[in-house]
Design a protein around this nucleic acid. Structure first.
Lengths: 141, 141
DNA sequence: TCAACAGTTGCGATTGGGTCGCAACTGATG
DNA sequence: CATCAGTTGCGACCCAATCGCAACTGTTGA
């Protein structure tokens, strides 16, 4: 299933004029198989483990390319290297458990609407936003 | 007035066991005089301009110390060096104009409450959060 | 007032994420 | 299958930030 997704993306990218190289194909498969939020180094390792050697520089360049194509999204949490996730899901924000480092996704329409309202009131429109809740399990500590 | 504020802080810090050196005193004065969101390099320059030579390493160390004391807050916007602001103001979030780089502060109680609710629903409490709206003036572009 | 020392500073080296220049290579096209 | 613009790997490089270490200095207690 994720293999299929990777193939779909390849076709769409080729359509958009992006050359599908051995390295990009491998990274697409790695990304399609992700159910987490890996950083560039981690993706580099996973591609290697999957049997395709890709240089780290190429990992970075490919991630930038795929982001420009809207295939993946870049997450920049506080003080960590950037992480990446597939962009084909519905929009969501992130909760980061400060004790375990776990990343939990969530959505809330009311928050989305409020943000748009606030921006509008001040004469702006939202290009992009970032909401991160750094949290701790209740009753810990 | 900002001079007074800097003196107040010195007293409080000394109380907390933080040694007040020439360099820290200068940086406190620089910070108290800020009505913007400078980064470490900028603060380094401002201290120099104010007549007190402080090494960049010390600027970084002092900022870390002051943050630990709750005197200032660290802002990490996308892909920029970290910026800093006094922490004695009321809590607020940030809007960043993507065209001009301007940083606009805002607050919204409803958003604050919603965030707490969402975290609570999932069994968490918020330690810290970050909401950034990357915006563009309406009608531009 | 000052000795003592833990905490702080400046310097230059280092780390770490990420980018770049360039020569060699390779998908896509005709 | 020849062509060539786009892509890759390598190592050098960039930048923000941190660190080790020797020299220095607030603060404290006598």
């Amino acid at each position: 299933m994720t293999k299929d997704r990777a193939r779909q993306l390849e076709a769409a990218l080729r359509e958009a004029g992006v050359r599908i190289t051995r390295q990009r194909s491998a990274l697409l498969r790695v990304l399609a198989a992700c159910d987490d939020h890996p950083d560039a180094t981690e993706l580099h390792l996973r591609a290697r483990d999957a049997g395709v050697a890709v240089s780290l520089a190429t990992v970075y360049r490919t991630l930038t390319t795929l982001q420009a194509q809207g295939v993946i999204e870049k997450l920049e949490f506080r003080g960590e290297p950037a992480r990446w996730e597939p962009a084909d899901q519905q929009h969501h924000d992130h909760m980061i458990d400060v004790d375990t480092g776990a990343v939990i996704e969530f959505t809330n329409d009311r928050i989305e609407r409020l943000q748009a309202e606030i921006a509008a009131e001040m004469g702006y429109e939202i290009v992009h936003h970032r909401l991160e809740l750094y949290v701790r399990r209740r009753g810990n500590g």
